[in-house]
Write a protein that binds this DNA or RNA. Structure first.
Lengths: 354, 354
DNA sequence: CTGAAAGCGCTTACAG
DNA sequence: CTGAAAGCGCTTACAG
C-alpha cells in the first residue's frame, strides 16, 4: 500500500554478516550467555553497520515476555490520575518496561475493550484503576492467563488481588468532623459513583462522623455523582436550593468542589460564609494559594507502590495478594471556615495483608 | 518461575474444536473473507467455549500491522500535554488502536530510548512531541523503517515530516503588543528551552513586537528556561531584582507565570500592579476565576489533528508532508493590568503545505 | 562457548 | 468458500 516497504534488518542478516549463527547474535543482544569476545565484537559491528533493531514482537512471541505493562485509569483528565500515570511511566521506563495506556472514561465498556486488548497483546502485567466492580470478569481473565494485575485506587469486587489505594473512610470522617467542629449541624456530601469502592468507603466515613456526633442523617443531603465539575455544579445548586439547605458539604473529589463553588457563586452565596466545603484531592493548579481544605492522597506514592508490587509479581513473587492503604494528608485551608492556614496535618499509613 | 503457566488457547485449538482449518478461524476472527454461515457459527461457538483471545503479537508479526501507535510527550505533568494524550487516546481507541505512551521529561536520552523501543515494537505509527532537534536521528530511523511519524507541538530539526503545532510567533507578538498598549516600556520575556522550536518562535514574536513599537531590546530581559514553576520563580526573582527591572513579562508557559507570581509575592510585589504578566497556556485548575492573560493553544484540536494525520498515513496517504498551524485564542484577563474580563479574542487558523 | 532444529501463534500467498 | 504449506523473526531446549 505504502511505497516504502518496512524492509527491516533481521537477526539472520546480522548473523550472516558477522559469520556466526543466529543463536550467537541472540546471545549477544540479550547477554543471555557468554560469547567469545571476538565473535561478540563482530556481531556488534554487524549490528551497528546494518542498523539492526531487534523485533520485540518476535521476541515476545517466543520468549513469552514482551516487556510491556498496561496501565488503565478511569479519567485521564483528572490530575490525580495524571500524576499516577506519570509516576508509573517513570518507574517502568527505569526498568526497561514500556507502558501501554488506557483511559476508560469511567465507562465499563471501554474498560472491557482495553483489558481485552491488553490480554491479546500478552502484556507482562497490568495496573488498573477500575471503573468499579464491573471489571471483575476482565481482570479474572487476565489473571487466569497468568498476567499479574494490581488494582489501584479502587477495589475490583471481592477479587483476591494486590491493591494499593488511599485511605478513604478515615479521611472522610476527619473532614466531616472538622466541619462539625466549625459548628455545622446540616452537613451534606456529594459522593462519587457508588460503583467505585472508594466512593462507598468515603460515604461510610462521612456517616460515621455524623453518627458519632449525634447529628441526624438526612438522606436527602447525600448525593451520588460522577467525578465532574458539572455534576458538582448541578448537584451543588440543587442542594443549595433545598428547602433546608446544608451549611457545609464534603465532596469526594476536587472537581466536585469546584463545581459546587461555581454554583454557590452563581447564586450569590459565598464560600465558606454561606457554605463551608471540605474535599478529597489536592490539585488546584494556579498562581494563587489554594483554598480547599482537603484530604490529599499521595498520588505519586500510590503509583509507585502499585508499580513496585507489579514488578515483584513479574519477578515471580507469588505470595498472598496484598492490600496496601496509603495514608492521606489533611490540608486545612480556608474553604472550611478556618482563617489562617494552620497546617494541622493528619497522616495515616497502613499496610495490611488480606 | 511462576506457578501458573500462561496456558493460552491458540487458533489451532479453536480450529480443532470447530472441525475446520486454522485459516477458517483466522478468517472469522478478522472478517477478512467470506466463510460459510454454519462454519462461522461453529467457529464462534468454539471461540466462546474456549475463551479464545487471539494473540496480537503473532498477528502483528506475520501481518506486519500491530494496531498500536506510540505517543511521546516531553512532560506528562503539564496539563497541555495531558490533554493531548487524553485526546489522542480517545481517537485511537475509537479506531481500535492501542496507545503506547512515553514521557521524555524533556531529556533527549529518554526520548531516544523510547523511540528505540517503539521501533523495536514495530508500532504502526508515532506521534511525538520532541524535546527538540535532538530527535532527528531517532525519527529518521523510524521513517526509514516505514513507520509514519507525526510531530506535535515542536518541529524536529528541518525534517520533512507531518507536523501539527499551535501558532507561536503571532500570539507572542500579540501578547507583547498588549502589554505595550498598557504603557509598558520595559518588557521582559522568560522563554522556553531554545532546543524547542516553539520557544524560538515565541521569542521571535516578542522581539518583533518590541521592534515594531520602537522599544529598545534589552538582552538581559530575555531569559531562557525550562518549562517549570521553579525556573519561573527563580528567574522571576532575578529579573525583579535587576537594577532596572521589567514592569511587564511575557512567559512562554503557565508554569513559568505561576513561578514568577510566587517570586513577586515573596518580594512583596503585586501582579499586575508592580509587574504585568501575559503568558502561554491556559491551565489554571481551581475554584476561582483564572487571572492569567494568555495565549490558549487548543490542545484537544492539536491532538486530534495530529491523530487524524497519522491515521491518514496509516491508510496509505503518501502525499507531501504537511505543516498545520492551529490558531490560538488570546484570553484577556487581569494579570496584564486589564480590569474586567473583556473577552477580546484573537483567533488565527492556518494550514500550510511545506 | 556454539549451532541446527523446532516452535511461538498467527497470516500470506497459492491452489483448488 | 476452504485448506496445506511456508514464513513472520525471534528463543527454547538439545547437542556438542
Amino acid at each position: 500500500m505504502t511505497t516504502t516497504r518496512p524492509a527491516y534488518v533481521t537477526i539472520a542478516d546480522v548473523a550472516q554478516r558477522a559469520g556466526v549463527s543466529q543463536m550467537t547474535v541472540s546471545r549477544v543482544i540479550n547477554s543471555s550467555a557468554a560469547v567469545r569476545p571476538e565473535k561478540r565484537a563482530r556481531v556488534e559491528r554487524a549490528i551497528e553497520e546494518l542498523g539492526y533493531v531487534p523485533n520485540r514482537l518476535a521476541r515476545g512471541l517466543s520468549a513469552r515476555r514482551l516487556g510491556v505493562i498496561a496501565v488503565l485509569v478511569p479519567d485521564l483528565t483528572n490530575p490525580f490520575f495524571t500524576e499516577i500515570v506519570h509516576k508509573i511511566e517513570d518507574v517502568a521506563s527505569e526498568q526497561g518496561l514500556t507502558v501501554v495506556l488506557g483511559n476508560s472514561d469511567e465507562r465499563p465498556e471501554r474498560e472491557a475493550d482495553f483489558l481485552r486488548t491488553v490480554a491479546a497483546l500478552r502484556v507482562d502485567g497490568a495496573i488498573i484503576g477500575a471503573t468499579g466492580d464491573g471489571a471483575v470478569a476482565s481482570v479474572r481473565r487476565l489473571q487466569s492467563a497468568g498476567i499479574p494485575v494490581v488494582a489501584l485506587d479502587r477495589r475490583v469486587g471481592k477479587l483476591p488481588i494486590d491493591i494499593v489505594l488511599g485511605a478513604a473512610a478515615e479521611p472522610a470522617q476527619l473532614l466531616t468532623q472538622h466541619l462539625i467542629q466549625h459548628g455545622h449541624k446540616r452537613i451534606g456530601m456529594i459522593g462519587g459513583p457508588a460503583s467505585a469502592s472508594t466512593s462507598r468507603e468515603r460515604a461510610d466515613g462521612y456517616r460515621q462522623a455524623l453518627r458519632e456526633a449525634g447529628l441526624e442523617e438526612d438522606p436527602s443531603l447525600y448525593r451520588e455523582s460522577r467525578f465532574s465539575r458539572s455534576d458538582g455544579s448541578q448537584i451543588g445548586r440543587e442542594l443549595l436550593e433545598h428547602r433546608a439547605p446544608p451549611t457545609a458539604l464534603v465532596t469526594a473529589n476536587s472537581f466536585l468542589a469546584f463545581g459546587v463553588i461555581d454554583a454557590a457563586e452563581s447564586l450569590g452565596l459565598s464560600v465558606p460564609g454561606d457554605l463551608a466545603i471540605a474535599s478529597f484531592d489536592d490539585f488546584e493548579i494556579g498562581p494563587r494559594q489554594p483554598i480547599l481544605t482537603c484530604a490529599d492522597q499521595p498520588a505519586g506514592d500510590i503509583a509507585e507502590l502499585a508499580a513496585r508490587r507489579l514488578l515483584a509479581r513479574l519477578r515471580g513473587d507469588d505470595s498472598v495478594p496484598r492490600t496496601v492503604i496509603v495514608g492521606t494528608d489533611i490540608r486545612i485551608r480556608t474553604s472550611c471556615g478556618c482563617r489562617a492556614a494552620e497546617p494541622s496535618e493528619y497522616v495515616t499509613s497502613t499496610s495490611l495483608d488480606s
